[in-house]
């Protein structure tokens, strides 16, 4: 099978569908058309640039440059996590919790995959490192953003319950345990669902892309499994780290609930 190259016209047809959706949203007064068009335009610009950058990047193998690009990806993901919070932690914590959790999970799992599973030489071969890292960052970012948001908003609405437990002499860990568990669940359910239905209900995006681009289905399936496992582990570890750091930050050294460390908006 040969790779069938997509023309600008082909893509414009697909883009028309999004425009159609925007028109529908405008008619039904859903108020989503503006964000939808902005998001779609952003994806066009970002992916085109990525295509151009990757083309250049794949032709060379400078570790500092690849490291720099990885850090830029991490920073943008960290910012995105912060932007999606209804109640942000104030100060450096706002960006720090999400970014450090993503760094811990995405980077370590990508490195593990590169060193022991895929075994590329050198390990920082950009053709492998950048897509894997991007895939992991994108997914852990969602998990972390959802769990953290869930943690802080629930802590806010259930202030009375948390303090009622502190009053009874419970430790801060006991007082937040329910909320912590629910927050983690909310971050992990999407990846659990997508593993459950993978291949039966849905063909995962990456596998579809690979098959359309001409890979043998079995190879595509194996890579998809690798990615799914990595995403599950990455999202799990990342959300766990974020929820743990975040919940500890909600209390001070005297185990007082410190919602003043959150700012709204």
């Amino acid at each position: 099978m040969e790779l069938i190259s997509l023309s600008v016209l082909d893509l414009s047809l697909a883009a028309c569908l999004v425009v159609l959706l925007a028109i529908l949203s405008w008619h039904l007064q859903l108020g989503l058309q503006k964000t939808l068009i902005i998001a779609a335009s952003r994806s066009v610009i970002q992916l085109t640039l990525l295509g151009l950058v990757l083309k250049q990047l794949f032709q060379q193998s400078s570790l500092p440059l690849i490291g720099l690009i990885s850090l830029i990806m991490l920073t943008v993901a960290g910012y995105e996590v912060m932007a999606r919070q209804g109640k942000k932690f104030s100060g450096w914590w706002g960006m720090g919790i999400g970014t450090s959790s993503m760094f811990l999970s995405s980077f370590s799992i990508t490195l593990l995959a590169l060193f022991t599973i895929i075994n590329v030489d050198p390990w920082y071969t950009p053709q492998y490192l950048i897509p894997l890292l991007g895939m992991l960052l994108g997914n852990t970012m969602n998990g972390i953003a959802v769990s953290l948001n869930n943690l802080t908003t629930t802590a806010h609405t259930q202030k009375g319950q948390i303090e009622a437990r502190l009053i009874q002499g419970h430790t801060w860990q006991e007082a937040i345990t329910h909320i912590r568990r629910e927050a983690l669940k909310s971050g992990l359910i999407p990846i659990i669902n997508s593993m459950t239905t993978a291949g039966i209900v849905s063909l995962p995006g990456m596998m579809t892309g690979q098959i359309l681009a001409g890979s043998p289905p079995m190879e595509a399936a194996k890579y998809q499994l690798l990615i799914l496992f990595m995403i599950a582990a990455g999202t799990g570890l990342g959300s766990l780290a974020a929820v743990w750091i975040g919940s500890a930050r909600l209390f001070d050294e005297r185990q007082r609930l410190r919602l003043d460390r959150l700012k709204s908006g």
């Binding site: 009053i167 009874q168 002499g169």
Partner: peptide
């Protein structure tokens, strides 16, 4: 703090 609150409730 947890021990204090158990005694001073």
């Amino acid at each position: 703090a947890d021990q204090w609150r158990r005694q001073v409730t």
